[in-house]
């Protein structure tokens, strides 16, 4: 059988998936919900976090006990976080390559970006697929503002949906406008505080870049 037609053929190196979005939208919380789910399905996983001038998010994930601490690398981006995932992703590429070398069976690297505004996006030189996380508390007008992240991401995640009635957000309209500006590309709803909706995010990532099921 040709190697190319081998149904078990595997790529060299892990799939790389970006998680971006504004400060406070729940990127790290989503990460903390994704890690145990991928581990439970047997996916060999590692994480890279991006912070401005600290390793705060990396330390939070390392301390969580969800994943071996050495599988979590931190990139400090300085004042311009989107640069490290878009214009010049050198540091993140180096970190991902380091993880690939350290863990030969690695299947998935989740790369969480430093917080930025609605205009951040990932270079496809760095990731194969990327999520953009917004939350209802940021206002239901976020989708119609047509930020680059909302428009271009492969999967839009609207988080903290449980808060919608408390912050007077019309969630149905927010989702409808997200579908409209994204021309029907996928949008999923989550409450990462409790893990609601996260299984669907895992399935989507697995379907698009893992191809293992």
């Amino acid at each position: 059988m040709s190697a190319q037609l081998n149904p078990h053929a595997r790529p060299r190196g892990a799939a790389r998936v970006g998680i971006g979005g504004p400060v406070g939208s729940g990127k790290t919380a989503l990460l903390e919900q994704l890690i145990p789910r991928f581990m439970a399905r047997g996916t060999d996983i590692a994480v890279i976090t991006n912070d401005l001038v600290t390793a705060e998010d990396a330390e939070r994930v390392r301390r969580s006990g969800l994943i071996a601490p050495e599988r979590v690398l931190a990139v400090e981006t300085g004042a311009c976080p989107h640069t490290a995932i878009r214009e010049d992703p050198t540091l993140n590429l180096a970190a991902a390559d380091e993880l690939d070398r350290a863990y030969p069976g690695l299947e998935l690297i989740l790369i969480e970006s430093g917080g930025d505004n609605l205009a951040s996006s990932f270079s496809l030189d760095l990731v194969d697929y990327w999520l953009f996380v917004i939350d209802v508390a940021g206002g239901d007008d976020i989708p119609r503002k047509r930020g680059l992240g909302v428009l271009q991401c492969d999967l839009l995640v609207i988080n903290k949906v449980d808060l919608a009635p408390h912050v007077r957000v019309n969630l149905d309209r927010m989702v409808s406008e997200a579908h409209e500006v994204r021309l029907g590309r996928p949008t999923l709803l989550t409450n990462c505080a409790h893990g609601d909706g996260v299984d669907a995010v895992v399935e989507r990532i697995a379907q698009e870049v893992l191809f293992d099921r």
Partner: peptide, 25 residues
């Protein structure tokens, strides 16, 4: 042109074959 940059993606050929594209970095 944008998707040309992706090393890994699920695509469909013009004859309907589903393809898991998994290229080296």
């Amino acid at each position: 042109r944008r998707d040309l940059s992706r090393r890994r993606q699920r695509v469909t050929t013009d004859r309907g074959t589903e393809v898991a594209l998994m290229l080296d970095r």
